[in-house]
Nucleic acid binder design. Sequence first.
DNA 1: TCAAAAGTGTTACAGATACACCCATGT
DNA 2: ACATGGGTGTATCTGTAACACTTTTGA
Lengths: 231, 231
Amino acid sequence: MPYTYEFARPALTVDCVVFAHDPGEGELRLLLVRRALPPFAGAWALPGGFVRVGESLDAAARRELVEEAGLDKVYLEQLYSFGEPHRDPREHVVTVAYYALVRLGAEEVHGATDASDAAWFALSDLPPLAFDHQRIVDVAERRLRAKVRYEPIGFELLPPTFTLSQLQRLYEVILGQELDKRNFRKKILASEVLADTGDVQKDVAHRAARLYRFDERAYRRLQKRGFHFEV
Amino acid sequence: MPYTYEFARPALTVDCVVFAHDPGEGELRLLLVRRALPPFAGAWALPGGFVRVGESLDAAARRELVEEAGLDKVYLEQLYSFGEPHRDPREHVVTVAYYALVRLGAEEVHGATDASDAAWFALSDLPPLAFDHQRIVDVAERRLRAKVRYEPIGFELLPPTFTLSQLQRLYEVILGQELDKRNFRKKILASEVLADTGDVQKDVAHRAARLYRFDERAYRRLQKRGFHFEV
DNA sequence: TCAAAAGTGTTACAGATACACCCATGT
DNA sequence: ACATGGGTGTATCTGTAACACTTTTGA
């Protein structure tokens, strides 16, 4: 009997904590799917599922996002692995958790995705979650809060071009604190990771704001010179 | 057939990147074990092994450290999970990597532990490693470097009481840069996470330095008040 | 003309950096 | 007495925080 079969093995899943930002809300949103099968049938849970043999963890997470939520090409990063023996009542299931950041199109914000039963919830008003998924969400939230301060990942939650006020509101939502407008603008523009598109907002009932985009090329250049982004 | 058996499952292991600090060296050391069995028989590898059903990931990591390296009660933290399908030539094996920080007793520094074939290597002069273990070591090193700046984990690598110079040298080794003695002392003492033991060094051929210990209680108090440690 | 958000500079303070000498101890 | 590391203070610089008004635009 080969060495690898000496012991029974735990099952292995991936689960994804999918964050989105609705500009109209003062809070992040989280994507949940309703479970069709036991255990926790009918309960809300993180999108996820079993890792297949021959499939990398990242690939499994991306596949589940497509299958269960219709989400493709999102920002995705591994979060932490959870392996308490009784986190799944059936048997020992270890899950590798990921978190994802997505840009909401207007049609996706309200109402479900094309998957059968998926919906967005305000982060502070989640329904009871299956398994230890609330715990995973908590860990993801802490990580996002910490990471957004020193890596430019916030842009993943915004449309490709955005105003400085939109960016500031996003940071205020994630960090849970108000920021000074002048200081925020000074700092973010001084960092030189934003490029002015030359365009301005359309169809707003007040002075139109300049539109910026995240300049990934500039960011990489700065990074190589030892610069580190910080809000 | 139950849902969980729908697909064949990858195997699941834990691997530990064990760092130690030898005061005499200008560099961290890493614990490796020699593999007895194929694949990579005879090669050096990270201590680790299969996760058993009913065992948490942390417990598996701690068990492997005891079994393979004779190390108990060390600082241990989950690092990252690696699951590329071909990282193990036999079959698909996913590993949850941990890193550990240990205090070296004089007798452990040179020569192996009580385990059959374990040894310490200078981090920059490792032998070729089995599997993707070099990659795991690289990730661990980056994490340690980053984390040591804003969490007081460096103390885990030092004896319970230590001098400020020992602490400074440790930081210099981890961060790979020289630090100014006066500024270092000012900053670390101002942070109030060190307690003066009242004792001094013994048996040194020069003025004996004060011995400090990390004051975990004080650190927790400060943490609650929103303070964050930084070097 | 009003409402709503865009845009803009200066001052004060705190923390970080740079820097060089005397002291205590054992050999 | 000398070699070795222990221990200390100040001046400058840099970045952060606090703070209020004018401008543009569409309704």
